[in-house]
Each structure stands twice: as C-alpha cells, then as structure tokens.
Design a protein around this nucleic acid. Sequence first.
DNA 1: AATTTCATCAACCGCTTTACG
DNA 2: GCGTAAAGCGGTTGATGAAAT
Length: 292
Amino acid sequence: MGRAPCCDKMGLKKGPWTPEEDEILVNFINNNGGHGSWRSLPKLAGLLRCGKSCRLRWTNYLRPDIKRGPFTLEEEKLVIQLHGILGNRWAAISSQLPGRTDNEIKNLWNTHLKKRLIRMGLDPQTHLPMAYSCYHLDKAHYASSVSTRHMAQWESARLEAEARLSRESSLFNNNPNPNSVVGSDKTASDYFLRIWNSEVGESFRSVRKSDDITSCQSPISPGSSSNKCGSVSAVTTELASNVKEDLEWRNSDSSSSNDLEDSSDTALQLLLDFPINNDMSFLEESSFICPL
DNA sequence: AATTTCATCAACCGCTTTACG
DNA sequence: GCGTAAAGCGGTTGATGAAAT
C-alpha cells in the first residue's frame, strides 16, 4: 500500500490556520465549484499547506454546512446511543448528526461523554457497568467482548422483538378484534425485527460474518468508513427512514385515534431508544451520583 | 499577582481503504 | 492482479484559555 507523503516537506506551513489562509481556501473552492484534487489544491490556490491540511480545515471548520455552537442534550444523547451501536465510528456517527463533524463528535466524546459514563460507573467502550467488565472479562477476552457488544445489542433487540410478536400473536388469536389495543401496542421492536429481516439487516449481518471478530472493535472493521461503515450508516439511516415511513403510513391509514407523532424526530427517537436501554438521565449534571 | 492544573478543540500523524492505470 | 496515489478515518498531540491554588 502506498502512503501519501507526509506534510513535512520544507516550506509547508503547519499549525493553526490564519483568517487569510481560510479566506484563500474558501474563495478557491467557491470559485472552482469544489475542491477538486486536494493534493493539487494548495499549489493552485497559492497556499503553503499540504492537501491533507487543506482538506481537514475545510471539512472540519470551513464547510458552509458546519453547525457551530455547543451540543444540545438531544445531540449528546444521540451520540451516546449511536456510540453504543457503532463504537468509535466517528464518521458514521457524525453522518447522523447534520452539521457536526467526526472530529467534533470525537472531541465531545473524549472530553465530556466518556468521562460521564465513567463517573456513572459505566465502561465507555462497552457501555456496561465497570464491575461487570472487570469481573467477567479477562484481558484476552476483552477485545472480542467489545467487538461482540454491538452485535449483541442488535441480537438482543431482535430476540425481544420476536418474543413480543409471539406474545402479541397469541393475544391476537384470543382477541380477534382488529381494533383492539394489541394493534396499537406495536413498538419499535416490530420495526426493528422487520428491518432486521430485510436486506438492510442482512447487509449488517453479512458484514459481521465476514469480519474477524478478534481483530476489530465492532462489527465493522476500523477505518472502513466508505464501505463497511457505510453499511452501518445505511442500516441506521434505513432504520430511521423505514420507521418514519411506517409511522406515516399508519397515521394516514388509521383514524385520528392514532396518537403517534408523525415526525422524523419521533421516528428516529423510536429507533434510537430501542436498542439501548441505558438510563440517559445522567446527562443532566444534577443527577451525577457516582463518585468514582 | 503569579503559578499550576485542567479542559477544550483544532490540527497533525499514521494507518487503511479506494480508485485507477 | 499489482502497484501507486489519493482520500478517509481514528488516535493523539499541543496550543490556548479558564479555573484553582
């Protein structure tokens, strides 16, 4: 594998960007309808920076769709939940938070969220209680446990969904009234199960199967964002999309008695609330109780 | 007021993956 | 199929400012 030459070439500037450099980079990209080749950009734009540095500056700071300002509570919850599913796949996580960069989310995690989980006695890698991780897992098994953790969440969710369907099926058989509570009692489990059994779920499972569990930290091998991470991202996106579509369909099909909120937020929340049952109340500073 | 410690985050580094000849 | 360049990604570092002593 060839590696891109590093930026240590003589004459290339490093360190913080000046407003003038920012302006040059932004103007160049705007005037040329895009960045084109990052490698050749600095020369063409007249910047004494390597292409890598330009790309990073653009994607993490200068891009017009970057959302500035502190993370909201909802965003923090989302990051934690997605981290529980995806692990340290910052790019995949950031794809679910419009306007937020992977670098920003990574910083948020390392400076705030990870510490909060630790203070709550939770392992920031596995999202399990520390005691559990310490007493039940030796070092040799740790890596594989981390890698199987995310898969386990999917699997437990699937099993729960199946159990629920089974229960509801028997209830339905005993109560043939189609308008009974059973029908409206369906939860995200059903959507999860359906999607799990769909092509999207299959793609997730096949990715899992094809990976060496012990060589990576999650179902998706590290650094494979554009391919395998893309699959996970697609799964998440597809899940949210499908749940929303289903909610819309149910809303339009049923009478006004259906009180499910028809919004992407609700759909996504439904999806995100499902796989992880962690109490998120610790996000509120006042509830910190674990002085580790 | 001076110094130390801590928190934050932009930027860098090195590795992997992808695209292409 | 192979080699290389380019791009993408995650881990880490270091500069900076705020808070504590």
